[in-house]
Amino acid sequence: MKKLIHFIPALIIFTMTTPAMAALNIFACEPEWASLAKELGGERVKTFSATTAYQDPHHIEARPGLIAKVRRADLLICSGAELEVGWLPLLQRQAGNTKVLSNERGYFEASAMVKTLDVPVETMDRTMGDVHAAGNPHVHLDPRRILTIATALNARLAELDPQGKEHYQKRYSDFKQRWQQAITKWQQQASGLKGKRIIVHHRDWVYLFDWLGIEIAGALEPKPGLPTTAGHLVSLKQALKLSPATMIVYTAYQNPRAAKRFSQMTNIPAVELPYTVGGAEQVNDLFSLFDVTIKRLSGERQ
């Protein structure tokens, strides 16, 4: 034990890695925000994503590796609206980093910059499952909202790193132009999807469907956040007899079994959508995220 105590100072020196060359150290709770920060910040920012497309952002543990990252962050970018309620407050409390507390400018909550959907209108309690008082937090699947968030994030980057103001503004203008063109293109590609009825695994898709005019025909989860049951699938099938659906969608982090089983029961095709950056092989930024999502929704194999 005594030997170990001598060992600790040596270890501290060893683990002190060289400081980042970038002006801002950004900790993104989800990959979509790391991607957006890279678009806007370029080489002036160093980004880290706490989660991958294969992880359910509701169910992350405040593990040591994440606490160490928050300790050195200048800016946290998170979806908010309670999506990270199980782990982010703990990271903020344990990291001892004043800059990134929720009341500070080093905390950027994406869902607070846009109008959220699915805000509970009546009383809310746990029998309703994993519902969020601030509305549905999966705001990044509407590219119009992404643009609003990018505008706010651009201002925040310039505020935290005033020397880079021109750099950020230039990158933002460039991103905005390319993004608006892309939205026009996606809307044309997706024009045939309007009015379609699609079954979802979880209500991750509310914003995407709101943008494209797609209707949610039902969810495989009986309540948000609760696993599928056989009984629920039977009643869902029953309900579809009256108003049919054309597709079942799920994400890379959700178990495909429920979607595949329901697909067998109903002969409706089940399609995995990338959900976020990294959720499919070709999806390495926000542009390819929507390219692939719309192609798959349109029934193209990709």
Partner: peptide
Amino acid sequence: VSWLAPTDTYLKL
């Protein structure tokens, strides 16, 4: 009183 080191490896004393 605890201190978290500014390192990539989590180290708390």
